[in-house]
């Protein structure tokens, strides 16, 4: 789907930036790259542009420009309700964080079941049941 189709509060993982030229390059240098996580923050009161969070900062894009960005909708693990079955699509962190998660059976492609959504969050992975901090759960994206 297109970035412009996501609603406020929703997350997407960038698949591709279409187009060429100044806009294309500008989006890239802002860090809108394949694999990056984007959150839709809010829509301007007049309906356009839209504010997005990416890599910890905020940018505003017109809908027409956001439609150059192809995304897959994802959700942070922390937003997933009890008893849902989900699949991990992205872990936002450095090597260390990814390894720590991996040790608990949380890695890209793996399935998880939410035992308790909050607080603390408990998930069942192929390696057993683990407790996750809120900060951690925010950095694991699932579908």
């Amino acid at each position: 789907m297109l970035l412009s189709e996501l609603k406020p509060g929703e997350y997407g993982i960038v698949k591709k930036i279409k187009g060429t030229g100044a806009l294309h390059r500008r989006l890239l240098s802002m860090g809108l790259l394949p694999g990056a996580i984007v959150r839709v923050v809010r829509i301007s009161p007049l309906g356009d542009p839209v504010e997005y969070e990416i890599r910890g900062f905020f940018i505003s894009l017109r809908k027409q420009e956001a439609s150059f960005v192809e995304v897959d909708k994802v959700t942070p693990l922390s937003f997933i309700p009890r008893n849902s079955d989900v699949r991990v699509v992205f872990i936002d962190g450095g090597v260390g964080f990814v390894q720590n998660m991996g040790a608990m059976g949380i890695a890209v492609g793996k399935r998880l079941k939410i035992i308790a959504p909050c607080c603390p969050m408990q998930v069942k992975t192929e390696k057993g049941v683990f407790t996750l901090g809120r900060g951690m759960a925010y950095r694991v994206f699932v579908r």
Partner: peptide, 8 residues
């Protein structure tokens, strides 16, 4: 112009 504006 492409309107890619940072909201600091």
């Amino acid at each position: 112009e492409p309107f890619v504006l940072e909201l600091p």
